[in-house]
């Protein structure tokens, strides 16, 4: 009877760990990696491997230097590394990719206290820093050898905006046989991975659906020439499924998630239709990341039987 312990809740714990969640995300990203190697060649695999290894190394070195517990085994750095690599074109110089990894891991994640404490998505900041620093290299898109002529010189987004391609290229766009960064082109594998994550209950489908749906709606309202084709191109699928669903930087509640997704979609379609910015998805998600604390506060559910203040 002496071993009676009083502890705070939760008393029942699931078997789900950060490690397992991150492993699921990595599994979900694998089809896209395979697609990107098929489309863009061996260098896609090389860049992804280097980026993942670099992120793990930066996190390990930082924690060693700062005498903090080593957390690289939770695989979150691997996910960040893969996502950063998915955001660069196949021709990206390796040192520039390493700069992105360094910013993501050290400046965004570790300086703010490591996993769970970053206020914006590390991979996205890595991407934006690379985009602002090496704009020419970041937009030097590679074009798969198999791409049809219409899709072999400009990205689908640019072509859709100018109205020069239409539905006859839908299959090419869906399968990613067009120019772009490593992980964004093949919408098919991205969606497959997203379905796997939903089935495993790693992510809830609210944010991706709200994000993609509202982008479709708002693009149509703002007068995009082909809203349906445009949601399958650019970084929208990659961003909506894998980046806008990061636990740390998105709202807790379902209503909050919905607002978050709608906000991302509104900003993305505004930027795509009126600014023609190559970073529309990244900037939208980052901006919405910043307002997450407010969304959380406004959508906080009332505890059952609880008395509200004021």
């Amino acid at each position: 009877m002496t071993s009676l312990k009083a502890s705070v809740s939760p008393h029942i714990r699931g078997s789900r760990t950060t490690h397992r969640i991150m492993l699921d995300v990595i599994i979900a990203l694998m089809p896209t990696l395979v697609a990107s190697v098929i489309l863009f060649g061996f260098r896609a695999l090389l860049l992804t491997a280097i980026s993942a290894a670099a992120c793990v190394a930066f996190e390990y070195i930082w924690e060693k230097l700062m005498k903090k517990p080593i957390t690289v085994a939770d695989l979150s750095a691997v996910v960040t590394g893969i996502l950063i690599a998915f955001n660069v074109p196949a021709s990206m110089p390796i040192w520039e990719l390493l700069v992105g990894d360094l910013v993501a891991i050290v400046a965004v994640k570790m300086l703010f206290g490591g996993i769970g404490c970053n206020f914006v998505n590390p991979a996205l900041v890595g991407r934006v820093v690379m985009f602002l620093s090496f704009t020419a290299d970041m937009t030097n898109y590679s074009y798969p050898a198999a791409a049809v002529d219409a899709l072999s010189s400009a990205t689908p987004l640019a072509l859709i905006a100018s109205g020069s391609i239409g539905w006859e290229h839908f299959m090419d766009i869906l399968c990613g046989v067009h120019g772009g960064v490593l992980g964004e082109t093949c919408a098919l594998t991205l969606i497959t991975g997203g379905l796997y994550l939903c089935a495993r209950e790693v992510i809830k489908p609210i944010i991706p659906l709200a994000y993609i749906g509202s982008t479709l709606l708002f693009s149509w309202i703002f007068g995009s020439p082909d809203p349906v084709l445009s949601i399958f191109s650019g970084g929208l699928m990659l961003g909506a499924i894998y980046m806008a669903t990061d636990y740390v930087t998105t709202p807790f509640t379902n209503l909050g998630k919905l607002i978050f997704g709608l906000g991302c979609g509104l900003l993305t379609s505004l930027m795509r239709v009126f600014a023609n910015s190559a970073g529309a998805v990244s900037f939208s998600i980052l901006l919405m990341n910043l307002v997450v604390p407010y969304i959380n506060e406004l959508t906080m559910p009332k505890p059952f039987g609880g008395v509200t203040e004021k």
Binding site: L132, S133, T135
Partner: peptide
């Protein structure tokens, strides 16, 4: 060709 362009912009300055 070996520059970090972001440093010359406002975000780099704040950082």
């Amino acid at each position: 060709g070996y520059q970090l362009g972001i440093l010359t912009q406002a975000p780099g300055g704040f950082f």
